[in-house]
Amino acid sequence: MPEDFEPVIIGFLCNWCAYAGGDLAGVSRLQYPPNMRAVRVMCSGMVHPDIVVHALQKGADGALVMG
């Protein structure tokens, strides 16, 4: 693995908690690495396993389901 490797992480964020937490992190100006791209869902329970597999097949380095 090259030293400058930067993973592309796809995050599935529950609208009511994880996504709101992301918003609050912004308001509080908490800094974190810019590697994650968020997909907002209405409940982390709606994330189908297929979509996670799909993301990994298409080249995502990681998938994060937060809720």
Binding site: R37, V41, K58
Partner: peptide
């Protein structure tokens, strides 16, 4: 829907570099 979420995921991964 799955197609909507997939469209989003595919759009990201089509040219994403972190």
């Amino acid at each position: 829907t799955l197609p909507q979420l997939k469209a989003q995921v595919e759009a990201l991964l089509a040219e994403a570099t972190a």
